[in-house]
Design a protein around this nucleic acid. Structure first.
Lengths: 244, 244
DNA sequence: CGAGTCGTTGATATCTTTCAATCCCTGTGG
DNA sequence: CCACAGGGATTGAAAGATATCAACGACTCG
């Protein structure tokens, strides 16, 4: 259940502390807070269903929201894993379009819900906020495209390699740590793989010494090798390239 | 080659006639036209490469632009097929981010290129234009998500069925015509399929009487059946469901 | 009429899914 | 402190669907 949390009249101050609202005028925050509330969700609580009209903009204060599209196989395709400090819903909100995905708490989560109508009104009255929101939606757009690129890779190993390399902090760092944003099965679902296939590829890479796995923490040891895999012609989890 | 086309000082008037600029003040159009030009591309001419900085907003006046991401297999994943009246580039342009895809003319094409810097400046000075652009990027975003949903379908038949049903004019029309926006191989690449698989599925559906194919024109005869396929558990181009 | 692009069709290999069993880790309660 | 339950991850074996390779056919354009 998403219970309404205690949230007194200092909601504007709370909002002002969020990175999302940095630089927003206080009078705007006050008006926004009129239609805002802090929600507390327990792990696996539903926040919204695909097709429902979106009533709020959501900013995750603490926790994780899993946005996903249900598939015929009784499986799901994860669209995004939204964690602390990030937001979602801007696009559908601006278009007053039904939600394109389900949203469920990946773990206990606190989030700010700003009423869609109120938010739209403020956006329509302040050029700066409008431009900032435009940029946020544009970023979402680019993220989607990168996800598309990754899951368009034909082989599972290439998908995983692309995903890992996406976390490369700088183009020349050959070794770096990654912490998976959620359960392995969710990351797998984001790459368009089953958890089994994801696990197999990961462990094949580990056996090769290209990465090391420690729970949900992965250390990339040989970025060059991973980069090669995304470029070369064929690398599968079973084929000669990764086996041995 | 993208040759500069003849474009005198009545560029603002030309722009005013495009749906894209409906309702934009004439003084804005005049300033935009200062950094704008009409490009003429022949089929297969390159407009831009993935990774290049995006110098313009593009509005297709006539023709077709194929936006795609190159894949290791020497194949490609089509991101969008932009035809007459539509635009692309807003998102990367606002973020001054490198182009996330290659862009090539799918056939002889005329398009308007508005300088990115000039465009950004106008957006930053006019709330209405900013809001309209925000909405356009949001629509792009939602389109991407729908494409993701379609190509996330596990079986090829489900992908094709979803794609066809996306063109359903109204939720209750069971029969309707579709004209493919480009070559079959490009549509296939947009669904994450090879042209061979796409062809097989299409012809299997034709043989079943669910659709009729006439070149790049497809007539959906039994929308209900297609809708079932996207919901049911298993439908492949080879399995018992579609074979026979 | 010939070249070339695009689409269809066939046969095969192989990778991913699927089903199933086991394992590991964590939190809980006796 | 230990046992147990439950979610999550790993690993194995099998089947099936799609990619791939290859050849052919259709249509367009010069």
């Amino acid at each position: 259940m998403n219970r309404l949390a205690i949230s007194p009249t200092r909601l504007p101050q709370t909002m002002a502390r969020l990175a999302y609202f940095q630089g927003w005028p206080m009078d705007v925050l006050v008006r926004l807070s009129a239609g805002a509330k802090v929600l507390s969700l327990e792990k696996n609580d539903w926040l919204g269903r695909k097709g429902d009209p979106l009533q709020s903009l959501y900013v995750v204060m603490d926790g994780l929201i899993r946005c996903f599209i249900p598939l015929p196989n009784n499986t799901e395709r994860v669209v995004s894993l939204v964690d602390t400090g990030h937001s979602f819903g801007e696009a559908s909100l601006m278009l007053q379009a039904p939600s394109p995905y389900h949203a469920v708490a990946g773990r206990d989560t606190r989030l700010l819900a700003v009423d869609a109508m109120v938010f739209r009104r403020e956006i329509g009255q302040n050029l700066n906020l409008c431009r900032q929101t435009l940029e946020r939606v544009a970023v979402t757009c680019m993220d989607n495209l990168r996800d598309t690129e990754i899951s368009a890779q034909r082989s599972s190993a290439q998908r995983v390699a692309s995903y890992l390399m996406q976390h490369q902090p700088s183009p020349d760092s050959q070794a770096f740590p990654i912490s998976l944003p959620g359960r392995k099965q969710d990351v797998a679902a984001k790459l368009g793989l089953t958890q089994e296939t994801f696990s197999r590829v990961l462990h094949a890479l580990d056996k090769q010494g290209v990465i090391q796995i420690t729970g949900s923490r992965i250390n990339v040891a040989d970025g060059r090798k991973l980069a090669e895999m995304t470029a070369k012609r064929q690398f599968s989890s079973q084929g000669t390239a990764l086996a041995n």
